[in-house]
Amino acid sequence: MRLQRQEPAERLVKYLEAIRLALGELLEHDPRVFLYGQDIAGTFGGAFKATKGLAERFPTRVLNAPISEDAITGIAIGAAQEGLVPIIEFQFADFASIAFNQLVNHAATMHWRTGQTCPMVARLPVGGTPGGGPFHSQMVEGWLTHHPGLVVVAPSTVADAYFLLKDAATCTDPVVFCEHKYLYYHLAADFDPRRAEHLPMGRAAIRRSGTDCTVVSWSGMVHEALKAAEVLAGEHEIECEVIDLRCLRPLDADTILESVARTGRLVVATESWPFGGVTAEILAVVASEAFQHLDAPPQRLAALDTPIPFHPALFAAHHPDAARIAALVLETVSF
């Protein structure tokens, strides 16, 4: 697909550029903010170029870290205790497992145990791309949402990549910011921060209204859900209500429950694995709190229960796509 190049004034903004814009504004307007991560400084500007140009503008506040995800996170926690707002970058979300302890046992518990807040942001490139393989493709919200005290967000749009990052940096709790790496350069929009809609962090967005089935998703999968909704509307006259969670923890259960009360049906789709995780949480909440509104068993669609494959054909079969979402919605509506 060719992304059209337009005149600078009307140029589309890519998802990654929105992140870089937010980081730049944060560095400029909030002296407490600094960036710490591997390869983010100098002219290199990060593995995905998220910080390109920022080190030149703010040389003392965009710092390269060694391959020490535990220390990177621990350092952020310590700096937050000194009143700074560290924004750390993991090169791939898959490496956040090394920082697991500092995230879930130190940052997440800090406020509850001690009354001291831990305002920090951990940026993670999540999600799969063809050929990425098991360690460069993971979605990690399944195990990070489990622990109380972390905020976990996952923007699916260019606007949210900007707004949620800015909100994360002003939140007094530690925020895990899941950026979908495929969307970095494959998603662009006509984005103007002054005009775009800014929903509060913690609130889910209804990306498409509908009456026949509620489809919940987040991150890259939202786009697959919307594609599925288009096909279902055009070919089957089924109107899906597509919800983009935006924030996984805390979970906006109210928006989901209100939608299911309208539609009576639920399909949750994720690129993550099925066991436990956010899809299971949503189904549990809906089954227990919206039982009387359900006209069909609630369903979820997740990746196959194996590590993420390397070969593009295996990779494509491994996770849900618009076709499979549409098929499951069709089944649910036909129940």
Binding site: V158, R207, A316, A323
Partner: peptide, 18 residues
């Protein structure tokens, strides 16, 4: 529905694309 939704192209993925 954000317009950026429609700027995303089909990935060079396997034959199960929509």
């Amino acid at each position: 529905v954000p317009s950026d939704v429609h700027a995303i192209g089909t990935a060079p993925q396997a034959s199960l694309s929509l």
